[in-house]
Simulated assay, not measured.
Amino acid sequence: MQVFTAAFLLSLFMLAGCGSDEAEMSRKHEVASQKEMRVLIESPEYVRAVGEAQARVESDNSVVEMAPWFGTTGLSNETERELSRYLRREFGESLDEPNSLKAADLVYLGVFSEREGIVYYWQVPYGGEPVFAYVIESGANSHMGWGARKPPTK
């Protein structure tokens, strides 16, 4: 996990630049950061961690979960099934973990027309605060998210 964190922080630093007004100093720092990044992503630990993460994703994708709300939302089967996978990736969980989020743990709350488009909501069992997952469809585009965004009151 430390390797991922270091690689992530270095990539953010490289994207943002170092904030110095001195172009030469900035360039030298960027080159050094790129070298550090290369060393990290070529390290056996990083390669192993990426392989393990990919194996977890493939394992999750091979399981066909069941949930009472599947087929009732108006979303495609693929989108409905992807929601719990997406949330597990966000939470750093894998389906084979005993207490990981399952599709059946999500409670479908309904669909609402909002300014961004058509929004589908689920309640997510996550800690003590109310947390919601959602799918927003706008024309041919859709995306998933989660957090404190609440469905509108009727």
Rank of each mutant, 00 (worst) to 15 (best):
T79D: 11
V47C: 06
G110R: 08
E58T: 07
G71F: 06
D21N: 09
S100T: 10
G74R: 04
D60A: 11
T72P: 02
V107G: 00
L83A: 01
E114G: 00
A49G: 04
L75K: 02
S84C: 12
W69V: 05
E90M: 14
E30Y: 13
E97W: 09
F91W: 13
L75C: 07
E114M: 13
V64T: 13
E78C: 02
N61G: 09
E30L: 15
V111Y: 01
A55E: 15
R89G: 03
S33I: 01
V64K: 12
S33Y: 01
E97Y: 06
E65N: 10
S100C: 10
N77H: 12
E80H: 02
R115E: 12
E82S: 12
V47G: 03
N77S: 11
E80V: 04
S62I: 06
E36C: 09
A49F: 03
E65H: 09
R48C: 08
N61D: 15
E65C: 07
R88D: 05
E52Q: 15
L101G: 00
E90K: 10
F112C: 03
S76K: 11
G74Y: 04
R88N: 08
A23G: 07
F91I: 08
S59Y: 14
T72N: 05
F112N: 03
L101W: 00
A32C: 03
S76D: 09
N61A: 15
G92L: 04
L40C: 04
T79Q: 14
P68K: 06
E42Y: 06
S26T: 06
R48Q: 15
R56A: 15
V107R: 01
E80C: 02
E90V: 10
D60F: 04
G71V: 07
N99C: 09
M66L: 11
S62T: 11
E22K: 08
K28V: 08
V63C: 07
F70T: 03
L75Q: 03
S94C: 14
E30M: 14
R56L: 14
M37I: 07
N99P: 00
E97T: 04
Q34I: 06
F70S: 04
